[in-house]
Structure formats: C-alpha cells, structure tokens
C-alpha cells in the first residue's frame, strides 16, 4: 500500500471548477414552515394593533359610526382622566413582582438545592394550583381575607392592621377591598411564573460551586450574594418579566378583591370597551399601556443584559 493509492484524476477544465447550484426547493422549506403560524400572528396580532391605532384617532359615536379624524387629543384626554389608574397599575404590578421575587426565591432555592428526593413532589405542588381555574382560586381569597375572618383577627391582634392603615394599604378593620388585598392576589396569581424560571436557572448551578466558594472562605451569605444569586440572574429576569407584564394589565384581582379606589387600568379599558363603548378612548388607553409596558420591558432587558456581565 503506497502512494499509488492516489490516482490523479483528469485535470478539471480551465479556471475555477463550476460550483454546483443548491436545490431551490430545499431553500424554500423554512418559509413554508413559517408561513401558517406567522400569518396567524400577523392577521390576529399585528393587524389588530394597527386597527387599534387607527381606532384611537377616530371620533364619532356608535350611532353615527366612527371616522378617522386624527384626533390625537383623545390620548391627552384619557391620560388626564385616568393617570391615577395608570400609576396605580404600574405601582401594584411592581410591588407584586418584587414580592413574588422575595417570596418565591426561597422556595425555588429549596426545591433546587435542599429538597433531595422530595424535589418532584414540591414541583408538583407548585404547579398543581394551576389545575384549578385561577378565578375560583382568587374567589377563595375573598373567603380567606373576609371581614372578621381568622386572618383579619390575627393581624388585628398583632396590630399589623393599625400600621397598614396608617400607610394607607388597608382601611379600618378590613382587608378586603384594600390595596393590600389586591397586591396579595396579584402576588399569589403570578407566583408560579416567578418560581419556575428561578428554579430552572438555579437547578443548572453546579453544587460544587457552593463548596468551592465555602472552601475559599465565603460565608453562606457571601456565597449566595457572590455566586448563587448572580448565576440565577437569567431566571430573575425572565421571572420578573413574566410576573410584571401580566399583572400590569390585570383587572381580575382589582375587581374581585379591591374596591373603586383600587381600580387598575385594565378595568378601565375593559369597561370603556365593553360597557361604555367609547372605542377611541379605550383604544388610546390600551395603546398607552402597551407603550409603557414595552418601554419598561425593553429598558429592563437592556439593563439586565449589561448587569449580567458584571
């Protein structure tokens, strides 16, 4: 067996050999795969947004039909009229998101590192509430927080309600129909959306990193601050987004657990659309909400993206 293994082939034609063309059908495959789903999203997600934008600058009435008059004044009007609800929505959503993070992190940590063979049971328990309609579960909070119920009694006995009353979170001896109840409901409803991404990113952390940090003179708290938490940041980012976005537009909790004073912007949009039938105002409100949320989300993602590198 020698170099005779290589038989020189006939020399190729002068110059560069002709490249072989890629089959055309193959290149079209991804577009065929994308087409139905993307069309669906364009027709039923993008086009509606365009319609909404156009509706928001229309004037008229239900009887005489609406017409595009480029009446941007509507935006200013609704902002002036409903800015308390806007600010309240953002505030409640932010507080609920923060609470979800604070309350959810220990549980995610527990499942990821301390649960041992109980891990699967705990995960099932986190997901299980999903199987009961969230409206039914939110109604259950009405029972839990009911006037004169055990929770109100306990908090009263501890004088917690006096404190929250001063802060304006509750009023008198009541929990229901107060901001605290609404935030409790929001936190409760979106907690799994915080815990699951947190768990996913914590679970990926190699347990030996904790030992290595301990070996390098880090206390458990320092280990958490310098190793565990930074490495779980992707989970923190997606968890906070998954809680903040839906809670900012939610009106179920505000409506079921709150009062007229805790109305969130979602309620306003809903009643403008479905009850008052002032479509331009409703569209403008919805558009502003979308813009604010997208702005907050993109700013946050950008900030989180850079912080992750630190």
């Amino acid at each position: 067996m020698t170099a005779t293994a290589a038989r020189p082939a006939a020399p190729p034609a002068a110059g560069e050999p002709k490249p072989r063309p890629a089959p055309r059908r193959k290149r079209l495959v991804p577009y065929w795969l994308l087409l139905p789903g993307i069309l669906w999203l364009i027709i039923f997600f993008v086009v509606p947004l365009v319609y909404q934008a156009s509706t928001s600058v229309q004037t008229g009435s239900l009887e005489n039909s609406f017409r595009v008059t480029w009446h941007v004044q509507t935006y200013w009007d609704v902002l002036q009229q409903y800015y308390p609800q806007f600010l309240r929505s953002l505030l409640y959503a932010a507080v609920a998101t923060l609470l979800c993070l604070v309350v959810g992190y220990p549980l995610a940590y527990l499942i990821a590192f301390r649960a041992g063979r109980h891990r699967n049971i705990l995960l099932v328990l986190v997901i299980a509430p999903f199987f009961t309609s969230f409206l039914i579960r939110t109604l259950a909070w009405k029972t839990i927080l009911a006037d004169g119920g055990p929770v109100v009694h306990a908090l009263n006995a501890l004088h917690v309600l006096d404190l929250t009353d001063v802060l304006g979170w509750t009023s008198g001896d009541r929990l229901l129909a107060t901001p605290l109840a609404v935030v409790t409901g929001l936190t409760y409803n979106f907690l799994p959306f915080m815990i699951l991404p947190l768990y996913t990113s914590l679970e990926r952390i190699d347990h030996r990193l904790h030992e290595a940090a301990g070996d390098l003179y880090a206390t458990p708290w320092t280990t958490f601050r310098k190793v565990t938490f930074p490495m779980s940041l992707p989970g923190v980012v997606s968890g906070t987004l998954l809680t903040f976005i839906p809670s900012s537009g939610d009106y179920v909790n505000a409506q079921l657990l709150g009062s007229a004073d805790t109305k969130m912007i979602g309620s306003v949009i809903q009643s403008q659309f479905l009850t008052v039938l002032d479509y331009p105002a409703a569209a403008a409100l919805s558009f502003i909400l979308m813009a604010v949320v997208l702005f907050v989300v993109s700013y946050y993602i950008r900030r989180a993206g850079t912080e992750e590198l630190l």
Binding site: Q52, L241, P246, D250, I269, S286, L289
Partner: peptide, 11 residues
C-alpha cells in the same frame, strides 16, 4: 411581552 388586555382589546 404584551398585557393580555391590550391583545384582547385590539383583537
């Protein structure tokens, strides 16, 4: 990334 109420209203 869109609050449900926005999608609901625009649809």
């Amino acid at each position: 990334a869109m609050p449900e109420v926005v999608m609901a209203a625009s649809l």
